[in-house]
Amino acid sequence: MRGASQPPLPPSAGSEVIRADRLEVAYRDRLVWRDASFRVNRGEFVAVIGPNGAGKTTLFRMLLGLQRPRGGTLTIFGATPHRGNRKVGYVPQRHTIDNETHIECESLVRMGVSGTHWGPGVGLARERKAASGALAAVGATDLAHKSLGSLSGGELQRIFLAEALVGDPELLLLDEPLSNLDLKRGRELVALVAGLVRSRNVTTLLVAHDINPLIHHLDKVVYIANGKVATGAPGEVITSETLSALYDVPVEVLRDSRGHLVIAGAEESLGGESG
C-alpha cells in the first residue's frame, strides 16, 4: 500500500488516469489532508472511504478543477484538472432536484449531452438517441418519461448516473450515491456501477462512508481520515495496522463469516462512521 509518508511515485504508466503526488489539500484556510500519493489506472473501480468531513468531496472538487491543491501535484489524463472536462462524468451528493421538480427524466439526461450548448441548433435526434442509450445502460428505460419528483432514491441515483454517462466519460466520479438508499437498493446500485465499470472500462471513483456494500467489487481503496490518506487494494488498506497508523489510535478490523468488515475503535475517538 501507499501510506501517508512515502516518497513520490515512479514515472507514470500509459494506462494511468489519476496521479497524485504528495498532494496537500486545504478547505478555506484549514488543512484537510496532506502527503497523499496514489494513482488510479484505467478501468479501476475505486472507493473513497472515510468519516464525514474527512475531505472526500474535496478530492472530487480538485479532480473536477473546482479547487486547487495547496501543495503537491494532481493530474488526470496526464494534465492538470480543469472544469468542463468532457472525459469526466460527475454525480454530486447534493442535487437541486426534489419532489417538486415536475420534469421528465429524459430531459435531465439530455442535459448531459446538450446542456453546455449555447444558442439554437442541437441535433435533436442524436441527443435523444444518446439519452435513451444512457437510460438503457442504467436499466431506467421505463423511467424516461416519469417526473423526476416522483422517483424513489434508488431510481433517482440511476437517472443521475445516466446523466453522467450520456457524454461517454472515461472517468466517473460518484459522490455518496449510496447515502440515501436502504441496504438492498444500495447493493443493486453498486452492482449496476460495477457492471458499468467492467463493460465500459470506465474508471470510477465512488465516495462512501461504509465499504461493506462495495468490498467485493473494488480494485482499490482511497481511505481518508485524520488528515491523512492511505491507498491500495482493499485487503491492504482495511487492516488493523494501516487504519491504526491512519487514525493514530489502535483500530481493529474484524471480519464476519460473510466477509463483512467491522472497524472498531475508530468511532469513539474520531467520530468516524466506517462500520
Binding site: L64, R83, Y90, P92, S107, L108, T116, E163, A164
Partner: peptide, 10 residues
C-alpha cells in the same frame, strides 16, 4: 435543473 453538475461541466 442541476446546479452542481452544470458547474462541474464548466
Amino acid at each position: 435543473l442541476d446546479e452542481d453538475v452544470a458547474e462541474a461541466r464548466g
